Simulated assay, not measured.
Amino acid sequence: MAFNAPSRPLSRRHVLAWSALAASGLARGPAAAQTAWPSQPIKLVVPFAAGGGGDALGRLLADGLRPVFNQPIVVENKPGASTIIASEYVARAAPDGHTILLNNQALLLNAFLNDTLPYKPLDDFAPVAEMVKAQLWMGVSTARTDATTVAELIAHMKRDPQMRFYASASKGSLGHLMGFNLAETAGLSLEHVLYKGATPAATDLGAGQIPMAILDLAGIKPMVDAGKVRLIAVSGAARSKAMPQVPTFGESGYPGFTTYSWAGLFMPAKTPPQVVKRVADETMKVLAQPSVVEKLFAMGYDPGTLTEARFAELGRNDSAQLGALIKRSGLK
C-alpha cells in the first residue's frame, strides 16, 4: 500500500524536498495552525471502490480515529485512473488537516507510468503513516501445472510456451513488476495479462485461464482454500506467519524479491506539521489495538510501523528500486 511525482524520474531535488517536508514540515498551513484542530468533519479519501479491501481498511481506520478526534470521519470512495483521481483530489484540497488520502505504492509508481500527472507526488503530499504492509504471493493454477517450487514452474514455462503468462492486480502493480523481474532473472519472456483488481485475477487463476499470478494473500487465499491454487513462493526477507510452509523467493533461489506491498496515509503538502504528527501518532495507536491487529491479519495484512520521516524514506527507497524496474520493463 506508497508517492507521486511528475511522470519523470525522481530528481534529487524532489527527494530532498519530500524528506524535508516529512521530517520538519517546512511548509506551514495557514489558519489551521492557529485554530483548534479538527474543527470540522475529516474526509478520508480512498481511491478504491466501496466493498473492496482498500475500502475496508479505510473504514477500519475511520472507526478507530473517530472517537479520538471527536469529529465525524467520512470515508469518500473515489476510484479510477490507477488512484490518480483520488490523489489529485487530495493534492488540491485545503491543507487544513481535514483531508487525508489512503493510498498504496501506486502513488509513487504512477510517476513513472504517466507522462502527465496533474500533481507532483513528492511535492504535493506529506507522508503521514504506513497503515498496513503485505507480502506478495506467487500462486499457480492446480489445473495447469504440478509445480510445487519456483524452479519447477520455471522449467515448465521453458518447455511449454502456453505457460508463459501471468497476472497481477493491475498494470504497473508490484505483482506486475515482480513478474517482469522474475522473467528477467530466469531468462524468460513472460506476458502479463491485464486485470482490474486482485479478485478477477485470482478467479481466472483458479479457473485455469492463466497459469500463474502474483497477488496479495487477501486476493488469492479463497482460491487456495478451494484447492484451485497452490502457493509456491512469497516475497520478503522471511516467511509469513500466515502460511509458514511457503518458502520465500530467496529460499527458492531468487534473492532480491524482498519488497512488500503497503498502504499508507498522506495529507496535502502544506498541512501543519503538528497536525500531520497527531494523525500519525493516533493512527499508530489504533493499529496497536489487539482487535485491529486481528482484523488486519484476517485480511492478510500486518499493521504498519513507520511514520513521517521513516515512511518517507520507505517511499524514496521503493521509488528508486521500482522506478528503475519500470524503466527497464518499458511500461507506460
Rank of each mutant, 00 (worst) to 15 (best):
P200H: 02
P38S: 07
A81G: 13
L122N: 10
G54S: 08
T307R: 00
T248L: 00
L61Y: 03
Y301H: 01
V229M: 09
L102V: 12
K171Y: 14
R8E: 13
K196C: 02
Y195R: 04
M178R: 12
R92S: 15
A49L: 14
A324G: 12
L101A: 09
A111E: 04
G80D: 08
G179T: 14
A93I: 05
A143Y: 09
Q105E: 05
D115H: 04
K120W: 03
A49R: 12
A33D: 09
G323Q: 12
P30S: 05
L102G: 09
M284W: 09
L194Y: 13
K277F: 05
T259F: 15
G179S: 09
R92C: 00
E294H: 01
G64L: 01
N110H: 06
G53W: 13
V279R: 00
L194V: 04
A5T: 11
W262G: 13
P127D: 00
A183L: 06
G206Q: 00
T148I: 05
P211L: 09
H192P: 06
I73T: 08
E251S: 07
G253I: 08
W37V: 05
T305M: 07
L287N: 07
G253D: 13
G197T: 11
A33E: 05
A2C: 10
K228S: 06
G208F: 13
N110S: 13
T271C: 06
G29Y: 00
K327R: 15
P272T: 01
F297C: 02
G197Q: 03
M131I: 01
N103K: 05
L26I: 14
K295T: 11
A320M: 14
E76R: 10
N114A: 12
S319Y: 05
M178H: 14
T305N: 04
Y260E: 09
D124H: 04
I84D: 06
I84R: 09
I154P: 06
K196Y: 14
D302C: 05
L117E: 02
D160G: 14
G51L: 15
S87C: 13
M212P: 11
A33K: 13
H156F: 15
Y254C: 07
L287R: 04
M138V: 00
A198K: 03
I220D: 03
A23L: 13
N77P: 14
R239W: 03
N77V: 09
D55T: 14
L182C: 07
F48R: 11
A2F: 10
A263W: 10
E191A: 08
L109I: 10
S291Y: 07
A186M: 02
S141M: 05
S24Y: 00
D55V: 10
A147P: 12
T116R: 10
L101D: 07
G256I: 03
Q34Y: 03
R159N: 10
T248W: 06
L177C: 02
M284V: 10
S24V: 11
E313M: 13
V246Y: 03
Q321A: 15
S173F: 07
R278Q: 15
L194E: 12
L109Q: 08
G315F: 12
Q274R: 14
V74H: 06
D318G: 11
P255M: 00
A151M: 01
Y119S: 02
P290N: 01
A201V: 06
A226T: 11
I84C: 11
A27M: 02
G172W: 04
T283L: 10
A183M: 01
P72N: 05
L10Q: 12
L217Y: 06
K171H: 11
A32F: 09
V193G: 07
P247M: 12
M1S: 13
A49S: 00
A106H: 09
V140W: 11
